[in-house]
Design a protein around this nucleic acid. Structure first.
Lengths: 235, 235
DNA sequence: TGCGCCGCTTGATATTTCTCAATTGCCAAG
DNA sequence: CTTGGCAATTGAGAAATATCAAGCGGCGCA
């Protein structure tokens, strides 16, 4: 089994699926202990630092991944070298679905925040899926989720003025967080998510801060003024 | 069974799947005659005029559709009422995959060119899928295809200058066509695919025509200057 | 035949965004 | 403490795009 340098450095043990803390929200949620006993392939866990690549576009898709903590970006590159971030992967998300279909990875997956992932062979999922209709359903759910997300990025994050796009991104980042708080990414990454430049992103965020739509907490955390942001996003 | 007005007007008979001309490229490609005999649900064919809606966002997803000819747009609306086209559906494409998961339709599907579709209950696909692993694989392929398409729209059609986006859209419309020909849509629709205004789209197309990147054939058909368009798209 | 509608085109102007460049602030290494 | 590097911010001018408005042309319909 090949492990690239980044991966080897980050290996943090074999996964203990049966006692997995995410057991209920994970791709394998429907499996029984009996099923797990039949798994002979190794399921490994990795800890990754920001900037590390989980895989590259075009690589043979041997593995799939479940994100346990942290965040990654899925990036595609244009012929001119500029990058576009097409999706984010968060805890409980699955990466590398295309590997089930023997397709190469479609994106580069780059770590944004300290991240833990589980890695398992795509072949394993294929085998398990042959006997578990529930797993099949779960896979389709994952695909549909990714698709819904992609469509939302098109309509919400790639349409309208820079101000609107930033507002919508902030609201999206703040969802499922407590107290309307959220953690921001670099201006460059946010720009690559929104199809605008780093400078425009920076100016917009700075303006939001001055207007009180965004309040510094600490480090990278901010409190959002949800009502005003919604208003901005909608008009 | 409820058929809305548009649908009833356009009904054009029960489908004859076994002798289907698209049999090999269609979702049911892997099924045998034996499988088809077991199908009791009706599979109907419809002929639809431009402007007709196949379904609306939020509708309960009872049916799935296979496009036999023509073209449809999948549209999502923003709170302010502006529309964004997130995908096109072409012959052999499947619409309404989300119905398998008992999810409501995510888009409005609007006919762009005279179109024929086959309609079948999502429940049927679920039932058949339980026994046919091949159908499951085919379903996952469809989802992956839609996802790849969505990502391409983000990177190619929602990034860069208006000129680049229009060039990339033209190249995309010209793919799989003979002689570098292609059929254009209304400026408004093209704008909604690219996230730019109708006027900018019109200006850009007009400019392309003047520069000979685009030559009028007849009606809505054009010949493309592929090399020059590629150059424009890439820089 | 003439009318009216609708989509395409074009023009003029207002805004927005990009581009290029400089400055600031922060943090970690020396 | 100083220094270097890097991300964020800010500024100014250029370029692209949106906006508002008008004209054009085809086509169906009375």
């Amino acid at each position: 089994m090949v492990k690239n340098v980044t991966m080897r450095e980050a290996w943090s043990g074999e996964a203990d699926c049966i006692n997995c803390a995410l057991r209920d929200s994970v791709l394998f949620a429907g499996l029984t202990e009996r099923d797990f006993e039949k798994i002979h392939d190794p399921i490994d866990q990795f800890t990754l630092k920001p900037g590390a690549s989980l895989y590259h576009a075009g690589d043979r898709g041997e593995f799939m991944f479940t994100v346990r903590s942290g965040a990654l970006k899925l990036v595609q590159y244009l012929p001119d070298g500029s990058q576009r971030i097409v999706r984010l992967a968060r805890p409980s998300d699955v990466l590398g679905l295309e590997a089930i279909l023997d397709a190469p990875y479609q994106h580069e997956a780059v770590v944004l925040q300290p991240t833990e992932v589980c890695r398992y062979p795509a072949r394993l999922v294929k085998t398990l899926g042959a006997k578990n209709p529930q797993l099949h359903t779960e896979l389709m759910n994952r695909w549909q989720r990714a698709l819904t997300e992609a469509d939302a990025w098109l309509t919400e994050l790639s349409t309208g003025s820079a101000r609107q796009r930033v507002a919508r991104l902030l609201l999206r980042l703040g969802r499922d967080q407590e107290n309307a708080e959220c953690e921001l990414f670099s201006r460059e990454d946010m720009g690559a998510m929104l199809g605008i430049t780093t400078e425009t992103t920076s100016r917009t965020i700075a303006e939001f801060k001055r207007q009180g739509l965004l309040t510094d907490l600490n480090a990278n955390r901010f409190r959002l003024d949800l009502p005003k942001l919604h208003q901005l996003a909608g008009e």
